[in-house]
């Protein structure tokens, strides 16, 4: 009786304003990968993923999955929902006998989409990073704090950000985002 997946962790009415959109993107596949980038397995894994493991801190590469730099020996592979098994197998096969850790962490974070011309202004209420497009443009990612929650922030094309957060924090973070968003919605006092 494999039941329906429960409702997403954050569970809120999405915001779809002219300048600002906030929504939850649930159940993405996420696999944590640890290895020494100098290990020969790194090249094989990059080929298996279709994109080399990024070694420049705070960047990500994309193929049919996104490969996000988390640390000098740590990446997060993010893909469409339901690909945990496929990805784990692909990574383990490519890793061979190398010292590699592959961990399914798909349920370890949920994902919020914050997008639109006001997205940067909204995030700046609680994120100490410089989010200027020259500094944190498409292709950049960062583990940092948003309000009082640790997040993984991903900048995509078109003023679009993904905010990956522990599900236990999602309710808090969404309440915070909606409160901070109020002034950026049309018809609200600035």
């Amino acid at each position: 009786m494999m039941g329906e997946r429960p409702s997403p962790p954050a569970r809120f009415e999405p915001v779809a304003d002219g300048d600002l959109r906030i929504a939850e993107v649930s159940f993405l596949t996420q696999v944590n990968l640890r290895l020494d980038p100098g290990d020969p397995a790194a090249g094989d894994i990059g080929r298996a993923l279709g994109v080399p493991l990024p070694t420049e801190p705070g960047t990500y590469g994309s193929a049919d999955v996104d490969v996000l730099w988390l640390g000098p020996d740590e990446w997060l592979i993010v893909g469409e929902p339901g690909r945990e098994r496929d990805l784990e197998t692909r990574l383990r096969t490519a890793a061979g006998t190398g010292h590699v850790a592959v961990t399914d962490v798909s349920a370890q974070r949920t994902t919020l989409l914050v997008a639109g011309p006001k997205a940067r202004d909204l995030l700046a209420h609680g994120c100490a990073l410089d989010l200027h497009p020259r500094v944190f443009g498409p292709g950049r990612c960062a583990q940092t704090m948003l309000a009082r929650a640790q997040v993984l922030l991903v900048a995509r094309d078109g003023d679009e950000f993904l905010v990956l957060v522990r599900p236990s924090f999602a309710g808090y973070l969404v309440a915070w985002l909606l409160d901070a968003a109020a002034e950026h919605l049309s018809g609200q006092p600035g």
């Binding site: 705070g58 100490a128 990073l129 960062a142 940092t144 704090m145």
Partner: peptide, 11 residues
């Protein structure tokens, strides 16, 4: 040394 300059509160 990896992520560049960040606020003290992250450390």
């Amino acid at each position: 040394p990896w992520c560049g300059p960040r606020d003290e509160a992250e450390f």
